[in-house]
Nucleic acid binder design. Structure first.
Length: 934
RNA sequence: GGGCGAAUAGCUCAGCUGGUUAGAGCGCCUGUCUUACACACAGGAAGUCGGGGGUUCGAAUCCCUCUUCGCCCACCA
């Protein structure tokens, strides 16, 4: 970075020419923490007799082993914007942070460590493995929370929680015991998704569909009593034929009716199995004959149940061919211990060799993969713990239907409803070691079994020895309690729970709508009788420019900490927020950080320089409060910028939307209002950059550099407008706004913008001052200069006259235009480096460069001759275009369909436009004529 | 197989219930160190709003259809 070559006339001692985020951010964060700005106080909430509305966001807890990636940055920036906004708006804001023990994910991390040492978890044993994992988590875990501080997250760190902490484990156990006692948790024997690598069962949600090009093998099963005949079955997993206990045909299928009850010989193993009739067989699919493998396919399991068939398991947990006690003799010796996919190849070879393989078709189908390690999941018969979901789903459905809770973007509500309506029971047991152990105890002596809140000393029934269930609970079984457990549940008297539950907004990605959001809704109702939040905001995914999800394996990620180091946290946040359309994915270019994050840095620099101007030119002595200024002393520019400020505030408020539902239910009109962070960012940016900096500062320079009361008024307006702008921007760019706000004239030591009041409209100033005409005149003159390549330093004279052809009745701007020429001449001249010369009538037009502004003609007389021909053509073309547009406007206004149906204000604005355009046409006509045209 | 979303300037995207001459940032072109800011300022070029139909006084916006991407859900072997 190069320092400016120029030296400012004076420079505030502590405001360097360049903003240095690295030197500022850490110290500001420490100040906030020391002052307890982020600490929530339950006693201040209305629910505890205070006068502040509570506003609660619980952070989606990152995995305890995670390191910060852009997805986290996105997710937490959104939450921080919302919580900072509400904190400033006067709510008692709580943003509760924490981490998730992340059962499978964390266990995988430790197992990988062990693998590098040549060990498995079984070498350590359960207790040692858990101890090692705990140690790992204690020493290196939770690092991500410190990284969140670096991006400015204003969490209440005094309330940091962890899903596997003793407190939250109490909640998990309580929830389990209650559901168990209520009969909603049960032991089920059925086919579940099994990951042969993680060696655990998975829930339906954890087994992800992946479309794959597979093969459909058609295999002949010959009749046992007549090997010359047989049935052809089709399967995508030939290795499972070792577990076949029947082949099924549809009872109405005439082709096979006669064969039902006869036996076929299973290839490879030579076992004889029956032909049965079952509705499940679809005559239209394949050959209409389906092999039945009850232990390795959920549908076949159902058939097996109906027909009371044997259910031999023919694979080991590791996914190699092998068998349990119930399957003796099914797996030939040469296949035992062979991996399932190798076994598939061997079996196919054998079938081909003996002629049973009729044909092989390519077949596109989806295969389930483990969501943690991507291994192909094996359906497997086993005993697992399930939660009966139907009764829990009802209130969660009703909450969204009734408007108690809304989901944004709204389209996800249908997805949510659809899933809950068809909800299936939740497999919550995992054959892992890392997690909350299933609190079910068994007495082998008296066969007692029960779920207990405390570990028992002996069997409650016979006092014999009890053993605890070996399984642990699905990670999400602790996550679904997060909004209540973190606040103190099951202690319903806990101050936090009473003050901050129900919470307000949940910010997360759509991927975990089912994993987490829907289940939190269910737990909220089941255990607290109310939804945990009124708004679910689902943001998009962080992707690269090819729209690929950012991921470690693709190497297309962006390290937020790196961005903070290079550009500052504010730049990171600005880029995230300003590009965050409702529900749309966020695209970042990992190959060009400069392009991606420079706009945020540049914006911060702009703010910095406005402050430098303010402090150098306007000084840092105290200013009069804006409310104490006599409105009659406000200039046209003052009133304009104050009205623009009110508009910016209104736009920001509208974009952020209502913070909560009036009356506790989202009305139709509000249901999809707000949460448009990109629009909020744009409104605030436009105000501070395009209005305050580009126009107000420029137009007020001479007043600010002068002296006396006019300077005082200008200072008061500037400081007020900038102060309010900083407040509007603080939730997005917290660091630089805090740094600058604390330097504003009149700042009281110890006060933070982080809990300064959110701006409200004051109604000072007004739009109709004619400042827009001042702007138009300035822009037009600048265009003339640029058009005609007049060197920037050269002074020129601009003659201003009202065209003789103009009809004053049409020209609504006429009086105000005369006034601004009188009042704003100095400003216009300074910003255009031109001298204005009001003229009564057209003069010397052929030798001038001309423009039309606000119903008058501006003519820049020039020393050299103007290319009249070119000028005339140009304005004639402009006139023709205007005529065309006027024509269609007139037609529209004449149409009864328009005047009858359109809203009155629309008709009114179109009429005003017509008047304006007509006036402009008059001027253009006169202009073209004076240039010698017709 | 079912459902949903997207397609607007070279790039990333706004444009919310149909109603200014379709906008922003970046990039591009021209000029400028104009005493807050070259991470800036001034001016400019650039879009048949994916294609085709339709509804309407009026369509980027609503309807139908096609194309191309993407996402979610699903027990058809």
């Amino acid at each position: 970075m190069t320092a400016s070559a120029r030296t400012p006339r004076s420079q505030p001692a502590d405001l360097p020419a360049q903003y240095d985020p690295a030197a500022t951010e850490r110290e500001l964060y420490a100040q906030w923490t020391r002052a307890g700005v982020f600490t929530a106080h339950p006693e201040r909430t209305t629910r505890a007799g205070g006068d502040a509305e509570p506003f609660t966001i619980v952070m989606p807890p990152p995995n305890v082993t995670a390191i910060l990636h852009v997805g986290h940055g996105l997710n937490n920036t959104v939450q921080d914007v919302l919580i900072r906004w509400r904190r400033m708006a006067g709510d008692e804001a709580l943003w509760l942070p924490g981490t998730d023990h992340a059962g499978i994910a964390t266990q995988n991390v430790i197992e990988k460590q062990l693998a590098t040492e040549g060990k498995t978890r079984y070498d350590l044993g359960r207790d040692a493995f858990v101890a090692r994992t705990e140690e790992f988590v204690r020493t290196t875990g939770g690092e991500i929370l410190d990284q969140l501080k670096a991006i400015g997250s204003s969490c209440d760190w005094t309330r940091t929680r962890y899903t596997l902490s003793p407190e939250l484990s109490v909640a998990v156990r309580e929830a389990f015991v209650r559901l168990y006692d209520d009969g909603l948790i049960y032991r089920g024997h059925r086919v579940i998704h099994w990951c042969p690598r993680c060696l655990t069962s998975l829930s339906d949600e954890e087994a992800e569909h992946v479309e794959e090009e597979g093969k459909l093998y058609h295999i002949m099963y010959s009749l046992a009593d007549d090997p010359s005949q047989g049935l052809t079955v089709a399967t995508t997993r030939p290795e499972t034929l070792l577990g076949d206990v029947a082949v099924a045909v549809n009872p109405d299928d005439d082709r096979y009716r006669a064969l039902v009850g006869r036996m076929v010989t299973l290839p490879v193993s030579g076992i004889r199995i029956p032909i049965i009739a079952d509705e499940y067989a679809d005559p239209a699919f394949g050959t209409g004959v389906v092999k039945i493998t009850p232990a390795h396919d959920p549908n076949d399991f159902e058939v097996g149940m109906r027909h009371k068939l044997a259910m031999p398991v023919i694979m080991t947990p590791e996914g190699t061919m092998g068998e349990g006690a119930d399957a003796s003799g099914r797996v030939p010796a040469k296949l035992r211990g062979v991996d399932r996919f190798a076994a598939r190849a061997m079996i196919v070879d054998e079938l081909r060799a003996d002629g049973s393989l009729i044909k092989v078709e390519s077949h596109r189908h989806s295969v389930r993969h483990c969501y943690r390690c991507d291994t192909v999941v094996e359906p497997r018969l086993s005993d697992q713990w399930f939660v009966r979901m139907k009764p829990l789903a009802e209130p969660a459905l009703e909450a969204v239907r009734s408007g108690r809770t809304r989901i944004l973007p709204e389209r996800h509500e249908a997805v949510y409803v659809n899933w809950l309506e068809g909800i299936r029971d939740w497999n919550i047991s995992r054959q892992l070691w890392w997690g909350h152990r299933v609190p079910v105890f068994y007495c082998d002596a008296c066969k007692w079994q029960g779920a207990l809140r405390e570990d028992p000393l002996g069997c409650p029934n016979c006092d014999g020895t009890v053993r605890q269930d070996d399984d642990v609970l699905d990670t999400w079984f602790s996550s679904w309690l997060w909004p209540i457990s973190t606040l103190g549940w099951p202690n319903e008297a806990a101050a936090d729970l009473r003050a901050f539950y129900p919470g307000d907004v949940l910010v997360t990605a759509p991927e975990i709508l089912f994993f987490w959001v829907a289940r939190m809704m269910m737990a909220g109702y089941r255990f607290m009788g109310d939804a945990p939040f009124h708004t679910v905001y689902l943001h998009g995914t962080a992707r690269d420019t090819q729209h690929r999800k950012m991921s470690k394996s693709l190497g297309n990620g962006i390290d937020p900490i790196d961005v903070v180091a290079r550009y500052g946290a504010d730049a990171l946040r600005w880029t995230i927020v300003s590009g965050l359309g409702m529900g749309a994915d966020a695209i970042f270019d990992p190959a060009d950080l400069e392009k991606t994050f420079a706009p945020g840095r540049n914006f911060a620099t702009k703010l910095w320089n406005i402050a430098r101007f303010l402090l150098t030119t306007a000084g840092d002595e105290a200013v009069a409060p804006i409310d104490s200024i006599d409105e009659s002393r406000l200039t046209r520019a003052d009133r304009w910028i104050l009205s623009r400020l009110d508009i910016a505030i209104a736009e920001c408020d509208a974009a952020l939307g209502p913070s909560r539902a009036a009356g506790g239910r989202w009305a139709e009109g509000d249901r999809r209002a707000g949460m448009r962070l990109n629009e909020y960012a744009e409104s605030a940016r436009r105000f501070v950059w395009n209005e305050l900096a580009d126009w107000y500062v420029e137009a007020s320079k001479s007043r600010l550099q002068g002296s006396g009361t006019d300077r005082d008024v200008a200072r008061a307006v500037l400081v007020h407008a900038f102060d309010q702008a900083l407040r509007l921007l603080h939730p997005i760019v917290p660091f630089i706004t805090e740094a600058l706000w604390q330097r504003l004239p009149g700042h009281v030591n110890g006060e933070f913008i982080a809990n300064a009041a959110w701006p409200v409209r004051r109604g000072i100033g007004d739009e109709s001052t004619g400042f827009d005409l001042v702007q138009e005149v300035i822009v037009r003159i600048r265009q003339l200069r640029s058009d005609f390549a007049i060197v920037p330093g050269k002074a020129v004279t601009v003659h201003v006259f009202r065209s003789g052809a103009a009809n004053p009745d049409n020209d609504a701007n006429a009086p105000i235009f005369d006034a601004i020429l009188r009042d704003e001449q100095a400003t216009i001249e300074r910003l255009t480096r031109a001298t204005l010369s009001p003229t009564a009538a057209p003069a010397g037009v052929p030798n001038a460069k001309v423009a039309v502004a606000g119903g008058a003609t501006l003519a820049m007389l020039l020393d050299g001759a103007v290319d009249v021909e070119r000028e005339r053509t140009k304005y004639a073309r402009e006139l023709a275009e205007l005529e065309r547009q006027l024509d269609s406007l007139e037609k529209r206004l004449a149409s009864p369909g328009f005047t009858g149906k359109a809203k009155p204000e629309v008709v009114e604005s179109e009429r005003a436009k017509l008047a304006q355009w007509s006036a402009k046409r008059e001027h253009l006509v006169a202009l073209v004529q004076s240039l010698g045209g017709s």
